[in-house]
Design a protein around this nucleic acid. Structure first.
Lengths: 211, 211
DNA sequence: TGTACATCAGTGAACGCGCGTTCACTGATGTAC
DNA sequence: TGTACATCAGTGAACGCGCGTTCACTGATGTAC
């Protein structure tokens, strides 16, 4: 069975996966419609008909890209904040550690982070059907849910200062990442994003830690 | 003279301006390369050759769009923060008032803010030449300069808590706007952006206002 | 005031290239019995 | 173990359409003298 084979030794040279990888790089650089099937197959080394074996049309490529991105995104966040909690049992301190590690991860990328597919797609959303736009929204709602849960949990042990807008504070994580990626790209400065994440951490601390 | 005529009564039906207006809407919806010259001239009611009278090629359209956007952006910000200062002589309180007005302005837009051309272009920057990318960077550096100056000025009168990263705090304004626009678009929720701006205001207050 | 010329804001027709998509076909591997 | 059939992962050639760009030309308005 192909399935079980893939489980024990995932083929890194899987053609479909390579198409998606090359496509993501190209789309983040030029946008979806400027990314031609022609250039993807040239990079991967198959013919055009080979492409249409894997994706019935270009829209299905977009959908597969989005699904791949979402899965990756979830894996990375799960891992980081889980590690933050392992080192600490208080939800606030675990969160602060997680944010620190997140900032460090952004800092240690070889060069400027290539960007976020969700942002790229959202600025081209008229190209896509509702299904893809919904996937994109789902990804962002997952960020909101993840951070919102954490803030609520922290608040049960650490009374917050004032009456903060918890939903907006949860969204602020995704907001700063998306915005930080844009500034980092436009100014070609890889330090911008991690520093924004650290400011978010400062803000969280200012809200929950007694002075 | 055409110039003086335009000064006394700016032609609102100026063809070139209408092309730029229509182009901006289309680019924010689909991206630059999916926006065809054909659709622009159809919307404005001229022929293709008429388009090439105004712009020597498509790249020059992009440049003109960027310049128009930068000028508009500067005008709006100048006006808002000037009004904030008029009502108040302390630089901190003037800033807080300006931020409040800024948030209100975002809130009162008819529907979801259409987005930021700088963000759209930055996720397609391989389509453009260095001149356009530099214009984009210049626009963002102007935000940084504007907010950085203000923070420095405030700090002379209100000693900040801790050792804040003022550059990152200045960038945070643009970051939250860019990120807030993306979330707002993806979730079709026009309240997200203004609430992020209000959080920024809370953060500024937390840094500078004694408890 | 009239004439000659220049500029402005376009028109109309044609171009060639690259794009996404389709269709009939194929060689290698997997599965049933 | 051999044979028949099915599926996988593509190939190769052709398609038509839309795109950005070019070129020669034009009618209306402005300017010099």
């Amino acid at each position: 069975m192909v399935q079980s084979k893939m489980l024990q030794a995932p083929k890194t040279t899987d053609t479909r996966e390579r198409l998606l990888e090359v496509a993501e790089t190209a789309v983040l650089a030029k946008g979806f419609s400027a990314t031609s099937i022609e250039e993807l197959i040239a990079a991967v080394g198959i013919t055009k008909s080979g492409f249409f074996y894997h994706f019935k049309d270009k829209n299905e490529l977009a959908k597969a890209m989005m699904l791949r991105y979402l899965a990756h995104d979830q894996r990375v966040l799960d891992e980081i904040f889980q590690r933050g909690d392992e080192l600490n049992e208080d939800p606030l301190h675990g969160f602060l550690v997680g944010l620190k590690m997140f900032a460090e991860m952004m800092q240690n990328l070889p060069d400027v982070h290539p960007g976020c597919l969700a942002a790229s797609f959202c600025y081209q959303d008229h190209l896509f059907d509702k299904e893809i736009r919904d996937l994109n929204a789902k990804g962002i709602l997952r960020w909101r849910g993840r951070f919102r849960e954490r803030l609520d949990l922290i608040a049960t042990r650490h009374p917050p200062r004032g009456q903060p807008d918890f939903e907006a504070m949860a969204d602020m994580a995704a907001t700063l990442v998306e915005g930080g990626l844009i500034l980092g790209r436009a100014l070609r400065d890889a330090t911008i994003l991690p520093r924004q994440v650290l400011l978010y951490r400062d803000f969280i601390r200012a809200i929950f830690v007694a002075a």
